[in-house]
């Protein structure tokens, strides 16, 4: 760039320096506050947690390095396997939210009178706190005064306390968890259905595609972005499940409804004592499991970016 020599006063030199470089410096100035806060509160703690997992630490007295002892102990801890297995059960059962959400979306994708309000009311459970949903369902399952009490006696299962039943407590919580999750998937699919090109549907219909074939060959492929997001949020939701367990069973009875997220909390911050190192080891394993999904998600985003989407 050619600049007139007369701009050589100190002031205008500085301002022209800024002018020349501002496009390079500005992004960093804009990134600094948010980026720093994020680094301090989100990125650094991941590494701190991983490092704490190699120590024995009660949170107060000095920590002592124990190598992989926490992980070794974890491998022999029956509660760890119960929690891990429950996470798997959560993952599998929670996936039901995706097809059920799709079914609901198909059912509601009409233009009858009042449908907008009906859709909002179907979506409603998602807006309410999981803690509140947990409280509501705890009372639902209550064997004497609960809502399902009459239903239970009808089936001859009087006084069956689902949440106190070692074999079924987890399913009881998952069922409650599905309630908002289905609503979430439904809204994703409703938006997806809304964006399907009408031409393609008409073309398909002209070619004689009907019902199931039309759905399978034309609709479902176009819903792929919605399906992808629905699966991502459902997997993350299943692995993050904490609130409902904390509210409904605290992992009980006898740890049978525990999951890694709650197990970690229990070890690190509850009456079981303050085992920060052990808790961090559990958190690290949960993190590594989730990292698989995160990396896959990032990989897909990267591919889309390269394609210029």
């Amino acid at each position: 760039m050619n600049r007139p020599i007369s701009e050589f006063s100190a002031h205008s030199y500085r301002s022209s320096w800024w002018k020349r470089h501002q496009a390079r410096i500005t992004p960093w100035l804009f990134l600094a506050p948010g980026g720093m806060l994020f680094a301090i509160y989100v990125i650094a703690p991941i590494f701190q947690s991983i490092s704490i997992s190699f120590y024995e630490w009660d949170g107060l007295s000095p920590a002592s390095y124990v190598g992989v002892a926490n992980y070794v102990e974890l491998m022999d801890d029956e509660q760890f396997y119960v929690s891990l297995w429950n996470n798997v059960r959560w993952l599998i059962c929670f996936m039901l939210a995706v097809p059920i959400g799709l079914g609901l979306a198909l059912f509601l994708n009409q233009t009858v009178f009042g449908i907008r309000l009906i859709k909002s009311l179907f979506f409603f459970p998602f807006v309410i706190s999981q803690a509140v949903i947990g409280l509501i369902f705890t009372w639902f399952y209550e064997p004497n005064y609960g809502v399902i009490a009459p239903l239970l006696s009808l089936m001859g299962w009087d006084g069956w306390a689902i949440l106190a039943d070692e074999d079924y407590a987890t399913y009881g919580i998952i069922f409650a968890g599905l309630y908002p999750q289905i609503a979430y998937c439904m809204i994703l699919y409703l938006t997806g259905l809304n964006n399907i090109s009408a031409d393609q549907i008409e073309a398909g219909r002209l070619d004689g595609a009907k019902g199931w074939a039309l759905f399978w060959n034309i609709i479902l492929p176009q819903l792929r972005p919605a399906t992808f997001i629905a699966i991502v949020v459902t997997v993350i939701g299943a692995l993050r499940s904490f609130d409902m367990i904390a509210i409904m069973t605290q992992g009980g009875p006898w740890g049978s409804s525990n999951v890694l997220a709650y197990f970690m909390f229990e070890q690190a911050l509850s009456e079981y004592g303050y085992r920060m190192g052990y808790g961090s080891a559990i958190a690290t394993i949960l993190f590594l499991i989730m990292l698989v999904y995160i990396l896959y998600f990032i990989f897909r985003m990267y591919r889309d970016e390269q394609r210029g989407l």
Binding site: A23, F38, I43, P45, F265, I282, M290
Partner: peptide, 28 residues
């Protein structure tokens, strides 16, 4: 803005969204 590391920084923000809260709990 296009600058070196742009996409990497963006992906770090994205990834941070999905991590389990428990990995942050003790340090935070």
């Amino acid at each position: 803005y296009q600058f070196k590391g742009n996409l990497l920084l963006f992906f770090i923000f994205v990834a941070g969204n999905f991590i389990p809260f428990q990995i942050l709990m003790i340090p935070v």
